[in-house]
Design a protein around this nucleic acid. Structure first.
Lengths: 328, 328
DNA sequence: CCTTCTGGTTAGAGCGCTCTAACGTATCAT
DNA sequence: ATGATACGTTAGAGCGCTCTAACCAGAAGG
């Protein structure tokens, strides 16, 4: 153990510490001869620079911290793809963390990330209190995905959840449904706008909204359906795809067929919804694009190219598959 | 911006830097009065210790680096749960990274993690060349999950892939199948033992093995099925659940019904397989347990409690659902 | 011949923290 | 009084690196 340091490399190559530092950072002001010697010594010793010491000394960081609220939800994996591609191209590295959708754990995860003094932080669907986010943003640029903020120091990337829910309701109504229940995302990120959008759309159509408390998980979708079985509606609009898939399972278990007995709409359009055996009608969020925009917003802040808050609101799209049809 | 340092806190509390350090580390040898003053000052300034400076000075780290080969595969999320719980309880923090199942990117991810000088590293299903792993293990304890190693400095946690494949084949044969194709995991981690197990089991039953080259993705499963449609077998054993789900989709698209026209077996038993609309017969790996064992092995090494390599080989279990039945 | 550059190189300070060893100051036995 | 014993506290060095400013050829200009 005991990794080689810059000093070891310098000694072996017969040059100064500073010269090794220049070579490692790819400076042009080093003679080819010395550069070769340094690289050779580094190779032989298996040396790679100590990122912490480096950022400590340089007072800068090329690390972006990312907190993923739920590793189990494929939605985030797809957002991360966009994030990763953009950040990598801009010369930043990503470091992840997870809070498991629990405020206390997310708070820990957040301080964990901050303790690395990253150049900036991305929070993917956080449920942590906004006070903690504001505190973090006082010291480091912060971008929120799937969560809104009023703070001028925080950037946000969201889809228009109200509009998305509206699309789902409009679709169901156009098929002839009048009893449409919303299984909501509880305290989850973006659950509120989706709920509001649902309620507004129902009222607009002169229908009575009916919301069942849920969560962004499969289990919550299933138990919501079980609770509804006494007086089943003709359609449900789930909080997200994961939730909808849980609902589908519970419906199948109860012997109800979809869409004949009940129509189901999801939200997110993850690969899960696209599976032929699920084939879920859902609201598409441009996941890759969201990741990309988040990385972009953060890096702009980091570089000081922008100080006003970015508020990306993306337009969702209805994706019709086979879980929706006219009611019997 | 510009976060407060220990010096700022010390000045504000009217004590020395060292005392603040002691308070932050929860040392008992600090008077209650000073402790209160320091905590108050820290609170007011929004101070939290600089993890990098800390580990630089203390020459220790409480960070474990984790490289996840594929964020899209729910299997890893479930392994991470076990990992996270154990590591957290032992006072370690996890930092993630991903290599997207591509050797070059994984290599970058690995050096990225190493540059933080973590106490140890966990590689979840890596496809990076073993030379790179050996090099890393010269400086830092390394644990491999779903990949084997002969290096005495590397610990491993695996399920018995050969046995698992054997169970799948035995199950299909017992149902009366004789033409069983294996869609393999290509160069993916643990693809080789699963393939070997399949081939051996087929031979044992006096049957002819037939392997289609694949990958641990949905897309690969689908395209393998399309390639098989000319002369379809009565059953396929997929590389993993993701792969099997792709196969199911392609079969449905081709108008073949499962299990009537073809039986399908997956591998992993992720929540995906358990979905009622998928209901995949599969080989269960104890995912949580694997994460737990990986964390345990790593932490034992870190603490110097063990220097001999740990080689956990877990017993998989057949989980029968509805995608397998007797052939027509 | 001396000055002025210029490109390559290096010494030394310092980033935010921990750790060692030493330093009071109060407490207790002698 | 005198030392011994503890407890709480702190100065100072140093972790691995970067950065500034200075340095030292050798080439070019007067």
């Amino acid at each position: 153990m005991g990794r080689p340091t810059i000093e070891d490399v310098a000694a072996r190559a017969g040059v100064s510490r500073a010269l090794v530092s220049l070579v490692m950072r790819g400076s042009p002001k080093v003679s080819d001869q010395r550069r070769a010697a340094v690289l050779k010594a580094a190779e032989e010793l298996g040396y790679s620079p100590h990122a912490m010491a480096r950022s400590l000394a340089s007072r800068t960081s090329h690390v972006l911290g990312v907190m993923v609220s739920d590793l189990h939800n494929p939605f985030w994996a797809e957002v991360v793809d966009g994030l990763d591609a953009y950040a990598r191209a801009a010369g930043f590295e990503l470091v992840f963390n997870t809070g498991g959708r629990r405020p206390s754990r997310e708070r820990q995860a957040l301080t964990g990330l901050l303790s690395f003094r990253p150049a900036g932080i991305v929070l993917l669907g956080p449920v942590v209190p906004s006070g903690a986010i504001a505190a973090a943003s006082a010291h480091t640029p912060v971008v929120l995905v799937s969560r809104s903020s009023r703070s001028p120091t925080v950037d946000t990337v969201n889809d228009d959840g109200q509009a998305g829910s509206g699309m789902a309701v409009d679709h169901l109504v156009s098929l002839g449904h009048r009893e449409i229940v919303h299984i909501d995302g509880g305290g989850g990120s973006q659950a509120a706008p989706r709920r509001t959008g649902y309620v507004n759309a129902m009222r607009r159509h002169g229908l009575t909204p009916r919301v069942v408390r849920g969560e962004y998980t499969e289990a919550a979708g299933a138990s919501a359906i079980r609770a509804l079985l006494e007086s089943p509606p003709t359609a449900v609009m789930a909080a997200n795809d994961l939730n909808a898939v849980g609902a589908l399972s519970a419906l199948a278990a109860a012997g109800l067929s979809v869409p004949a007995d009940m129509s189901v709409v999801g939200y997110d359009n993850t690969w899960l919804a696209a599976l032929r055996h699920v084939s879920l009608t859902t609201i598409d969020q441009p996941r890759n694009e969201m990741g990309r925009l988040a990385a972009q917003a953060l890096i702009q802040r980091v570089r000081g190219e922008r100080t006003s808050p970015a508020r990306h609101l993306l337009r969702p799209r209805l994706t019709v598959r086979t879980t929706t049809a006219a009611p019997r």
